[in-house]
Design a protein around this nucleic acid. Structure first.
Lengths: 238, 238
DNA sequence: AAGTGGTCTAGACCACTCA
DNA sequence: GAGTGGTCTAGACCACTTG
């Protein structure tokens, strides 16, 4: 690799190559990758350019760099990262994902809504996962999630992996990007309010969320109904 | 300026110096600042270090850099930036801040809640601003905001500036940072539901938001009650 | 053609971690 | 003390905008 041979900056090409090492499993979460000088030599670029690629990857939360120690591949299921798509916080103000119990998982052709949210084609299949989240022993959210079946082959054989999108993503080598959540007030069906332990016809928060992979593909659409007590819903704007 | 003489990296010191030019009014919104080569010479640093400071400022949304054109000071009240602290979107998915009408503005000693949210001391004064936001002619939110009086001296003489935090910040030279909003379901007092045109005892979204300056100081605490129709509340997680 | 920011290089030195 | 990432420099060249 030398200069830039198309019109895409070298450091972006480098980033893609390094990302592939992670997504492909050559570099595993929690492990250190070679130091930036060695990497620069391996790829035939200057150290400064390699640094720019690595800095980008740190901003994308793929790696963590520590002066004096090295560059480490992040584990998306680790403490700080596992809850990054949850805007629900405990009384201390820390994000929580709750203790998750998986209900049913089924495979079926995508509905119109799923096709729209997950950018599928008619006839594509999805997995539908039902989840129950509790905190301090209290059930606070029930949710239905839909995932493109093509991205997570064999999920039905390992249903427990369906409990969190971060677990799914890690296991199938999908790198996580951003997420977007629509918040509204709704009064869900009786079976939902019953599960949440609130009166029939009660109003709860509806959390309609789509999670995107790093490359921009939508990978999960979930609608949750949420009854908060000590917990709070907190959005941040930068 | 040469090397780093304390333990704070040069590029961060540079950033602070450049930020001061903007906050102090030497460089005004919408205007171009000197090119990076000239700036590097002026400050006695290398072009690369100056670039790093400018890149940081672009990430902080203080300036916009355009290849072939120059570096421009951002106007916080301009289209894209004025709505950045609003998570309410219109049917097209664009953030909206609404058409704002200012109700009463009063000055008073801070309450315990205001002291806590705005990090004031007992006896400090605040301005309390009442606002009404409408979209497509329909009132969708009524809110009460509290601001440290010390930061916005003379606001009572120019009440119309109180309509948006971005206007206040620009007029008083406060640089905007991030914001955090707590979302919950509430059934507000009758006068609020009346104003929003919904039945007494109705449930609406409560938006409890604190906006911080770039230096981390809280500059506005506002609680809004919000009745959405075509609009949506959308949170993003990175 | 002149001026701007964007990319890339090569090398020096600093600050931190760990054996 | 060896090894790592973080900062800083000096300079070349590229890509884009404008007159």
């Amino acid at each position: 690799m030398a200069k830039q041979f198309v019109n895409r900056p070298l450091y972006l090409q480098l980033r893609d190559a390094l990302v592939q090492k992670i997504a492909g499993g050559d570099w595993r979460p929690g492990t250190a990758i070679p130091n930036e000088a060695d990497l620069a030599v391996d790829f035939g670029v200057s150290a400064g350019t390699m640094r720019k690629a690595l800095d980008l990857m740190e901003a994308e939360r793929l790696v963590t760099r520590k002066q004096g120690r090295g560059t480490f591949v992040n584990d998306p299921t680790a403490d700080g990262l596992a809850v990054r798509f949850s805007n629900i916080r405990n009384a201390d103000g820390h994000r929580i994902a709750g203790d998750v119990e998986v209900g049913s998982i089924v495979q079926a052709p995508a509905t119109d809504g799923e096709i729209g949210h997950l950018r599928l084609r008619r006839g594509d299949e999805v997995y539908r996962v039902q989840r129950f989240r509790s905190h301090n022993g209290r059930l606070y959210m029930v949710e239905d999630a839909a995932l493109p079946a093509a991205l997570f082959p064999g999920l039905l054989q390992q249903p427990s992996l369906g409990n969190r999108i971060v677990v799914l993503a890690r296991h199938w080598g999908v790198l996580l990007g951003r997420s977007q959540e629509r918040v509204s007030i709704s009064h869900p069906e009786k079976e939902i309010t019953d599960a949440l332990g609130c009166p029939a016809g009660a109003f709860v928060l509806s959390l309609d969320r789509v999670v995107f992979a790093l490359d921009g593909r939508p990978i999960e659409w979930r609608v949750g109904y949420c009854q908060l007590a000590d917990e709070q819903y907190v959005a941040e704007m930068a």
